[in-house]
Design a binder for these strands. Sequence first.
DNA 1: CTATTTGAACTGACCGGTCAGTTTAATTAG
DNA 2: CTAATTAAACTGACCGGTCAGTTCAAATAG
Lengths: 229, 229
Amino acid sequence: MTSDPPGAGKGRTAEPLPTQGPAAAKVLRPARTTATRQKLFDASMELIGERGAANVTVDEIATAAGVSKGTVYYNFGSKSELVAQLLRHGVDILKERLLTPGAGPAKDPLLAMEDMIGQAMDFMAQYPSFARLWVSENWRTPSEWQGTFTVLRSELLAVIAHAVENVAKAYPVDPTVSRGSLETAIFGACFVVGLDRQTYNPERTRDQSVAAIMAIMRGYVLRPHAAQE
Amino acid sequence: MTSDPPGAGKGRTAEPLPTQGPAAAKVLRPARTTATRQKLFDASMELIGERGAANVTVDEIATAAGVSKGTVYYNFGSKSELVAQLLRHGVDILKERLLTPGAGPAKDPLLAMEDMIGQAMDFMAQYPSFARLWVSENWRTPSEWQGTFTVLRSELLAVIAHAVENVAKAYPVDPTVSRGSLETAIFGACFVVGLDRQTYNPERTRDQSVAAIMAIMRGYVLRPHAAQE
DNA sequence: CTATTTGAACTGACCGGTCAGTTTAATTAG
DNA sequence: CTAATTAAACTGACCGGTCAGTTCAAATAG
């Protein structure tokens, strides 16, 4: 019997799954398990990002991670749950990056914004598979991960919103532009520009991409100084 | 015997597809076939857009179109080819919309740009499934539709590039911003903002979305007049 | 005008293969 | 000892693609 699956969500068998809190003991889990989960994250990020969740089999993921299929089910309970936790994992990394201050502590909000978008570009370059997974599975109407996306999306937008807020406090901005729509546009542009660079235009530099996206902010601010210092 | 499939790509045979210009003999095709293809386009756009190509069966598409599975293969040869032609079909519609002049013939390039983005928003609202299909399947690395996407993407970008070009001729623009990256950012923002409105923020208006995307252009232009005429 | 023919369009049962998920007994690591 | 992992077999459903047969509208014949 597969003793007591840690994070398993089980299938149809309505067994009680006694004292197993959802995401309780992540840190105190044995080192071996943590390593296994990391290998599975890496492998599935790569495979699912490239081909889409539906086009990758659990067997493939297990093999790529150098692990048996049973281990996948022992650790995650289902393919669907693996993907959900994969999304959460990626967003945690991205959020941490976005919140990393560029260099100095107190900085001009526009420069901070530029740093943040640069961080986003770096993330897209480092984890292109995550970006692909995100845009591929987001926006699906009755998606298995509908709830997951809603939560994660708002977490990321909150980070952007905070940066935009700081700009709006330091500069006169166009009041006719809806803040939410603007944030969405920035959010989307980061993903798409990052992915496009990866897929169709590898010759474009990181800074070119940042500058293009920053045009949104320069257009939002009524008159920074001269746009060309 | 299944006589001669019209548009069927057949499986492996590298068929020349003789005198088939993009939209050449569409009218002289028997009315029944044209109607059937339209029904199949409608049904698959809806289903594939919502759930992704891999999560929709040919049987489902056929049933939704009120047609038998065999008819799908008679008309398209394969599921893959159906999707490819579906993409082409959608892009043709979008391109036509984008090229539709707003109202007056000779217009201010920035206003023309605003019209164009408005057209894009309307398209996303009318065919959200196409937008979902596009962002879901684009950027996949060894995609079956890699070639299709490359062609279609450049066609759409050319339309945007032309509009941006007109702005650059009429206004002083920031020379440090890469034109290509800028176009990509606009392109991506249109899709993402349109989709986000559909999925997460239905309360946002079309004009809010257009304004947010237009911020990119206002940030690209060095100094239009006062940003708030 | 009616009967017959023709072939493109369409049908739907069927087949071979695939895949998610389950189970179990044995093995390994902490 | 116990939790984690393995390997392998198994199931039950599902799916893309095929194909022999049917329908139907238009052309042709009488």
